[in-house]
């Protein structure tokens, strides 16, 4: 086990844990509000572990929607993870099957984005110690703050007063900006932004995420390929 990989993973994960804590509290509070017990809310955070889909699921649960429809909606909201695991595959070829199992279980938006960024800056694959430390530093606080929210949710008051509601969009914005030197960045971001905003208006949340992402990825596939194969991208660095 590599100490510095462990410490860096822990540090990076704790930043995410802090900015997602308000959403975990929000989930816990909404869950109890919609008829889940504290234990059930904790179980959902521990096993599903995907913020947006948990909120969607709990909202539908409160409306007494058919169970299969709830599961299908959770699946749809999480559909973007299919793209993540496809893109992550080449960065973790050296993981053992058990390590891969945990890696995919922990595969959240920030986990994926930080893994790609780390692999690109180091020019090699990801260290499992770093990945697991990062994941644990996000997972356990997520679980903890969900339960806290379920216990105390209604006493917390309005998150807008302390402006914690702006933290997550800003955090994701920072991640997007971090990818600005990638080939095709501007057309992809423009397409995804347009697709998601239009999807939000005409189809509704949470479908706009899958719609916008699909349009961005299709635009990337249609962009002209780089002429020289020698123009090494960061991703092919990782493979060698």
């Amino acid at each position: 086990m590599n100490r510095s990989e462990f410490n860096e993973g822990l540090k990076g994960g704790l930043i995410i844990a802090l900015s997602s804590a308000p959403f975990a509290v929000l989930f816990g509070a909404v869950a109890v509000d919609n008829g889940l017990s504290v234990a059930e809310a904790g179980l959902m955070s521990a096993t599903v572990y995907a913020g947006a889909s948990q909120l969607v699921g709990i909202e539908l649960f409160g409306h007494h929607v058919a169970p299969w429809l709830i599961v299908l909606s959770v699946f749809a909201v999480n559909f973007r993870h299919i793209l993540y695991s496809a893109a992550l595959a080449r960065l973790i070829t050296h993981f053992t099957p058990v390590q891969k199992f945990f890696a995919f279980f922990l595969l959240t938006d920030p986990q994926f984005a930080e893994s790609v960024r780390r692999a690109e800056s180091s020019g090699r694959g990801i260290d499992f110690t770093w990945y697991a430390a990062f994941g644990a530093a996000v997972y356990f606080p997520w679980l903890f703050f969900s339960v806290v929210g379920a216990f105390f949710g209604r006493m917390m008051g309005d998150p807008q007063v302390l402006a914690i509601d702006v933290l997550l969009p800003i955090y994701f914005l920072g991640l997007v900006v971090g990818f600005r030197r990638k080939p095709g960045f501007y057309p992809v971001v423009a397409a995804s932004a347009l697709g998601s905003v239009l999807g939000y208006h005409f189809v509704g949340s949470p479908w706009h995420v899958s719609i916008g992402a699909a349009i961005g990825v299709v635009v990337a596939a249609l962009l002209p390929l780089p002429k020289e194969p020698a123009t090494v991208t960061a991703a092919s660095d990782v493979e060698s």
Binding site: A87, P169, L173, S192, L194, S196, A213, V218, A221
Partner: peptide, 26 residues
């Protein structure tokens, strides 16, 4: 295939943008 690789490389920016753009405009 190279086009699929290009598409996979675009996944982070494409997905994260969908979490940012509607949050901004709405």
């Amino acid at each position: 295939p190279p086009r699929m690789e290009q598409a996979l490389n675009a996944v982070p920016a494409a997905v994260l943008t969908t979490l940012v753009a509607p949050a901004f405009f709405n």
